[in-house]
């Protein structure tokens, strides 16, 4: 919390997710941008580097794994947290193997996500 606010990009095609999580994360001291479209999020990622990206695995045309790839293309430092309602072990394993920071299954409590985000933030600060 010392140097600067960490920047988070949140992508979920369910607009309520962003609507609710944004104020919570902002209250926790993060700067949050919310997207409901994977394509727009990837465009944004190309222009700006975020500290943490939280993405639903399955969004409309572009899926979470593509977002992950886009993130890794631009910044290796960025932590990617995957959310999914389609909690299959293979998908989680694939995401983690491809370098996702953590995996969280829907439905989850806000504090669960906050814990994961805080963990990522702590790691970022340590680096």
């Amino acid at each position: 919390m010392d140097a600067r606010q960490l920047e988070i990009l949140l992508i979920d095609d369910e607009d309520i997710v962003g609507k609710r999580l944004r104020p919570m994360l902002e209250k926790a001291g993060y700067q949050v941008e919310v997207f409901t479209s994977g394509r727009e999020a990837i465009e944004r990622l190309a222009r700006k580097t975020f500290d943490i990206v939280i993405s639903d695995v399955r969004i409309d045309e572009v899926d979470g794994l593509e977002v992950l790839a886009a993130v890794q293309q631009h910044s290796s430092r960025t932590k990617t947290i995957m959310i999914t309602g389609f909690a299959t072990l293979e998908l989680a394993r694939e995401a983690l193997a491809k370098g996702a920071f953590e995996f969280i299954a829907k439905p989850f409590y806000p504090k669960d996500l906050k814990k994961v985000v805080d963990k990522a933030a702590a790691q970022l600060r340590q680096e």
């Binding site: 997710v17 609710r20 309602g85 439905p107 989850f108 409590y109 806000p110």
Partner: peptide, 8 residues
Amino acid sequence: NPLNNIML
């Protein structure tokens, strides 16, 4: 999805 929305 709706469950998650409700939970959050």
